[in-house]
Simulated assay, not measured.
Amino acid sequence: MPTPPDFARPGHLGNLTPEQALKLQQTWIHLLRLCNLPSSVPHRTPNLTPSLQPQLADPSPASVWRLLWNLFLHDHPDVTLLRFLRARKWDVPSALSTLLSVLNWRRALRLDDVLIRQGDSLPSSDQGGFLAQYRSGKAYVRGSDRQARPVFVIKVALHDPKAQTEEAMEMFILHSIETIRTMMRFPEQETSCLVFDLSGFGMRNMDFHVVRFLVQVFEARYPEYLGVLLVHNAPFVFGGIWRMIKPWLDPVIVSKINFTTGNADLARFIAPENLQTCYGGSDAWEYRYIEHVEGENARMQSEKKDEMHAERNGLIQQFELLTVEWASFDPDSVEGRRKAAERDDLAKQLGDSFWKLDPYVRARTYYHRAGVIDNGVIDFKAAK
């Protein structure tokens, strides 16, 4: 039986039980209290704010609000919160604790202020190493799998652990994940497909630091973003490495790993029209990095940025107030469903406002230059 798409699975937006919807409401109320927006439903949601605030490096409402809404990007905000609730088995305090840990981590790394805002121009002790990862062609997004998820191909044989610093690899991984996040549009895509192509792999390519880092970020920093991981054409030598790596992995991650051998095996997960010819498909495209174009980020200095911020912030304020109203009703009641529908409509407007603001706050990437990301239109097989 074919695997259902992400949005059709239990626990996803549009497919929640009344109890799950109630836990989503409770999560929102806790977060809005941290953002200093008073709730009118204290009888339904015990106030955890005092216990949550010490977990924040900067518990000021303005800081929490900014980090939280930067995390949501263009998605329906509920989609992001549901990732954390599913990852923590619907335990609201645990989900909130994990979410706040992620906000602290993003703040400490200055992901929004440095990595995303400067992209290819990333000021780093190893800027060349960071850019070298993109230029190498060792990892890129191309096409989508049979569940419409973006496919991120990693050609491990092109990786030399000694050719760049650990910092450069970590920044490249995070920048790639953050970019892929902008390609994932609810309801079509909530997760991604990773292909670890081990064709030509040897021990010279093995990088345990990268493996540990990937495990950490997908388990603790980007929960529920990985849909399937395909380990393709693993050579005999990888068997011993796999026995070492497997104990590091959460069982949920392990359940998403599939080993494929040969092109026909890979085609079970990715249709031939979305597979490059090197994998037996009909897509003749080959990766070529497109260099930074002078002036492509000029809008980040434009005064119009304030206008775009103001428009989005106005919609956010409406969404937050409507969320408080929604959370005051039983989610399965007539009024609760009506308020949920109003929130869904407003979430679409928020998504549109993100794309209007995006060129003013996010540096352009290879995927913008190639036409994969074009003002909110995502084409996983752009021709460039």
Rank of each mutant, 00 (worst) to 15 (best):
I29W: 00
P42Q: 09
W28Y: 14
S39P: 06
Q20N: 14
T45A: 07
T45G: 04
P38K: 04
P38N: 10
P38R: 08
I29G: 00
S39V: 04
S39L: 09
T17D: 15
N47M: 06
H30T: 05
H43P: 09
L37F: 12
T27H: 00
R44M: 10
T17S: 15
P18I: 10
T27Y: 01
P18K: 08
Q26C: 08
K23V: 04
L22K: 07
L22M: 12
T49Q: 11
G14P: 10
S40T: 13
Q26T: 11
P38F: 01
P46T: 09
V41Q: 07
L32D: 01
H43V: 15
H12V: 07
S39E: 07
L32V: 07
Q26G: 11
N15C: 14
H43R: 12
L34D: 00
H43Q: 15
L32K: 02
P46W: 06
L32Y: 02
S39F: 00
H12C: 13
L34W: 01
W28Q: 00
L13R: 05
L16I: 12
T45D: 01
Q20H: 12
E19Q: 15
L34G: 04
G14E: 10
Q25G: 10
H30Y: 08
N15G: 12
V41E: 03
L24E: 05
A21M: 07
N15F: 05
T27A: 14
N47D: 15
L24R: 03
H30N: 09
N36T: 12
L48Y: 02
P42L: 07
R33D: 02
V41H: 05
T45W: 01
T49Y: 01
E19L: 14
I29H: 00
P38C: 07
Q26Y: 05
H12A: 08
N36L: 10
S40L: 11
H12Y: 12
K23G: 02
H43L: 12
S39T: 13
T49G: 05
G14N: 13
Q26I: 08
T27L: 08
P18L: 09
L22R: 05
L37P: 06
A21K: 00
P42H: 04
P42R: 04
G14Y: 06
L34V: 10
R44P: 02
S40Y: 07
L32Q: 04
Q20E: 15
G14W: 08
L13I: 14
G14Q: 13
C35K: 13
H12K: 15
R33G: 01
I29Y: 00
H30P: 00
L48Q: 04
Q20F: 04
